[in-house]
């Protein structure tokens, strides 16, 4: 699974950690897939409970920004 850094544009995690979009994008150079996964799950949590995004909006955003190479 690969997650695009575009998923984190104007993101909850950026606001939470006070990190700019550019700096957040630079973290994606380290190829730490487990870290991206955790970050993505934190982002979904923040958008659900703090930004009140609906499930279908989140699903659509995830589908646009996640490429399924293989989960296993």
């Amino acid at each position: 699974m690969s997650i695009s850094s575009a998923f984190f544009k104007n993101s909850f995690v950026g606001e939470l950690f006070n990190i700019s979009d550019n700096r957040l994008a630079s973290m994606f150079d380290f190829n730490d897939k487990e870290f991206y996964l955790r970050l993505m799950l934190l982002e979904v949590w923040g958008r659900t409970f703090f930004y009140n995004q609906k499930e279908f909006e989140l699903q659509s955003s995830l589908s646009k920004n996640i490429s399924l190479l293989s989960l296993q």
């Binding site: 996964l37 949590w45 989140l58 399924l68």
Partner: peptide
């Protein structure tokens, strides 16, 4: 399947109440 995983993330997060990073 893989796509089921992606589709279910928002629902699971809502019920779980916290990021479920440790229990995919």
């Amino acid at each position: 399947k893989d796509q089921d995983f992606v589709d279910a993330i928002p629902k699971v997060t809502r019920h779980y109440g916290q990021p479920f990073a440790y229990h995919p």
